[in-house]
């Protein structure tokens, strides 16, 4: 059955991410069943599908949170299949979670300060050795500056010194995105980043994503809001029941029989 699926109609010239035949089962459920797709470098690509289609699981497989039962992931020309999440993140592929994973008993600023990679002070001896520690403090001051700027950008700087656990759902999603940006990624995988975020901020957020795209970032975006997908994504990937249902330009997807069928059939 999966053999006769709609094949991609457009080609990706310069893929930054390629997933091939990804497969994952949980007990009796096959959450992802042979999904293959590519994401164009520098694009904003949408990943859509009805609830339970396997989108979040696909993210987990790509970013090493789960180990795929089969298939491969290639990021920026290198095979990252089955690598640990930290290794993948350090290569510049960073994700956010559908249910935001803020660090509750840490302040918003502390959360932010975790973003930057390879901080000097992440080594024990640099942190504790008297003179060397000054370098750490200097770096902390620089990072602190970036953290504040990013918080201002996302308009949550007034919450900077609150515990992350006291934030609303939408604010947590913003925090998570802001924190992910501080890692200096090449590509961001965002799992429903707009969920719970108020409409005016959502607009700004989308603008910000476009700005970042102009700076060369690539995005893979899971989103249920079709307007966002149709208006902001260059390409769209559709999943259904763990399989790739369709792939193409937003306009093509909009008219795709199989896609409409999937969304109507599976009572969403």
């Amino acid at each position: 059955m999966s053999e006769q699926r709609t094949r991609p109609t457009t080609n990706v010239d310069d893929p930054i991410l390629r997933a091939e035949n990804l497969r994952k089962r949980f007990g009796g459920i096959v959450a992802v069943d042979g999904a293959s797709f590519e994401v164009e470098r520098g694009s904003i690509t949408g990943l859509i599908g009805p609830n339970g289609a396997g989108k979040s699981t696909t993210f987990n497989l790509i970013t090493g949170v789960y180990r795929p039962d089969g298939g491969s992931v290639v990021f920026d020309g290198g095979d990252v299949t089955g690598h640990s999440p930290e290794r993948i993140a350090n290569q510049g592929l960073v994700r956010t979670f559908q249910i935001a994973r803020e660090l509750p008993e840490m302040t918003v600023l502390e959360n932010m300060m975790l973003g930057p990679q390879n901080q000097l002070g992440e080594s024990i001896w640099r942190s504790v050795t008297p003179v060397v520690r000054n370098e750490v403090i200097q770096e902390e001051k620089q990072l602190r500056e970036r953290a504040w700027e990013t918080l201002e950008l996302f308009e949550i700087d007034h919450l900077a010194e609150e515990y992350a656990s006291s934030l609303s759902g939408g604010q947590r999603k913003l925090l998570e995105l802001a924190r992910a940006l501080l890692t200096d990624p090449d590509m961001l995988l965002l799992d429903e980043p707009m969920a719970g975020v108020n409409p005016s901020l959502e607009k700004k957020l989308l603008e910000r994503i476009h700005d970042l795209q102009d700076e060369g970032y690539s995005f893979l975006l899971v989103e249920h809001d079709m307007d966002v997908i149709m208006n902001h994504c260059e390409r769209v990937i559709v999943m259904h029941q763990g399989e790739l249902l369709a792939e193409g330009l937003p306009a093509e997807i909009q008219g795709d029989e199989a896609v409409i069928e999937a969304y109507l059939g599976g009572d969403v």
Partner: peptide, 12 residues
Amino acid sequence: REDEVAARSLGK
């Protein structure tokens, strides 16, 4: 302590 998966996903 708070969330190891989140920390790893940030490259730690």
